[in-house]
Design a binder for these strands. Structure first.
Lengths: 107, 107
DNA sequence: TATACATGTAAGAAAGTTCTTACACATGAA
DNA sequence: TTCATGTGTAAGAACTTTCTTACATGTATA
């Protein structure tokens, strides 16, 4: 999402992923380092299932990356960290991306 | 939306405004110059009431600016043009904005 | 007057988003 | 075994977004 120019569909998904206060807080929190789902939920102050859903949305958009790991005491822990995100947002970028919008078969 | 750093609430509104294929097409089209509602609807291929709604959303987010004018033959024409939009989108920007999220009284 | 063009808005259907509650499973320690 | 911790997911309510259709207003021209 940061390297090559995003397609129109990717850009819509990225903006949709970022258009939510809880998800912006997740990103802000993850700037302090990777964290796992239950702890993130506590820190941010939302329920774990809700946070799980928000993380899925962010991961689908390529904003965060998750990896399931086993802790020393054998628990399955899903850690999330920020992916690269560095986009120069201008009308030019949008116009380029818009040219590749499919707008049909998308869901 | 391009000059000062956006607040968290403004950023959510901006992303929400951009998270739609029709609205990306509107922005792409307006790069070619200002245009009025009925003509934009024809060019983009959506109904005029629908386009009207999308333009309202873009204007509320500060992405476009509209001005009602009288044409030579006396018709009321509402012209829209792009506002400045130049944002370096990074986790840092998001983290800064997230700190100002209200998350309460906002609808 | 009727047509063509412009504006705005309101009602309602359909679909998507957000959130809670509840369930299921697994491991380690008391 | 029971409790505390972690994982995931499914059902349903409440709300928002998207879109169509229909109505109402106006001016200029045929």
């Amino acid at each position: 999402m940061t390297q090559r120019e995003p397609t129109g569909d990717e850009l819509v998904e990225l903006f949709a992923a970022l258009a939510n206060p809880v998800r912006l807080r997740i990103i802000a929190t993850l700037r302090g380092g990777r964290d796992y789902v239950s702890n993130l939920a506590r820190v941010i102050g939302v329920s774990r299932p809700l946070l799980h859903m928000h993380l899925q949305r962010l991961e689908a958009a390529g904003v965060v990356v998750g990896s399931l790991e086993l802790s020393d005491d054998g628990k399955a822990m899903k850690y999330f960290e920020l992916a690269d995100l560095d986009l120069h947002l201008t009308p030019e970028l949008i116009a380029t991306a818009a040219a590749s919008l499919t707008g049909k078969e998308n869901k």
